[in-house]
């Protein structure tokens, strides 16, 4: 149980961003595992199925909830001049906070900013982000789990990462 419950909870929480919702998803996933019995051909098939069912149940749980918190990603993407160079204030486009220590970035207001940025991602983007960057699955595996094309998965992943980067840069960039 421990092997799967940790992963299921991580993914469910990553998508729903709610501990009570994630707990319900974990219980529902285990109920489905029990009901399905031994109908899997090996551990890989079971693992893939668990990711898929967890993603679907988590997305269903999110349906109609907290949409007001989610922002359009268009405002969080870089803008460009007609010649293809970055548009915007020079100090902002060269702001590099990447050398700041992790303990500072992952605590206090910076951590709250990061969590808020993740909260505000549309749920399908957050699902791809968690499956790729937390669970470290391949684009192909994620595409099968979310039932989309590899190209769509790559686009969502890139836009989600860009949105996190933008939010953090708007908060940290001035002090870099």
């Amino acid at each position: 149980m421990t092997r799967y419950s940790a992963r299921v909870y991580r993914l469910a929480y990553g998508i729903t961003r709610s501990a009570p919702d994630a707990e319900e998803v974990v219980q529902d996933v285990f109920l489905q595992i029990i009901n399905k019995g031994a109908g899997f051909e090996g551990r890989a098939a079971l693992s893939s199925w668990i990711y898929r069912i967890t993603t679907n149940l988590s997305l269903n749980k999110r349906r109609g909830k907290r949409r007001e918190l989610e922002t359009s990603l268009d405002d969080m993407l870089p803008t460009f001049l007609p010649d293809g160079h970055r548009a915007g204030d020079r100090a902002f486009v060269v702001a590099d906070w990447s050398e700041m220590p992790d303990d500072k970035l992952l605590s206090g207001e910076s951590r709250r900013m990061l969590e808020a940025a993740i909260d505000r991602l549309p749920e399908h983007y957050r699902a791809v982000l968690v499956l790729r960057d937390v669970e470290e699955l391949s684009n192909d595996e994620v595409a099968q789990i979310v039932g989309d094309t590899v190209a769509a998965v790559k686009t969502r992943l890139h836009r989600a990462r860009m949105a996190l980067r933008e939010k953090l840069t708007r908060y940290l960039g001035g002090g870099a």
Binding site: R10, G14, A19
Partner: peptide, 28 residues
């Protein structure tokens, strides 16, 4: 600007990974 974008993109990705590694609470 692109060097800064790349460095902060990498860092944001790494922070997202760490932030996502949450554990199920013991009582749960």
């Amino acid at each position: 600007p692109c060097r800064a974008y790349l460095a902060t993109y990498r860092k944001a990705r790494a922070l997202g990974t760490v932030a996502g590694r949450i554990e199920m609470p013991a009582e749960m």
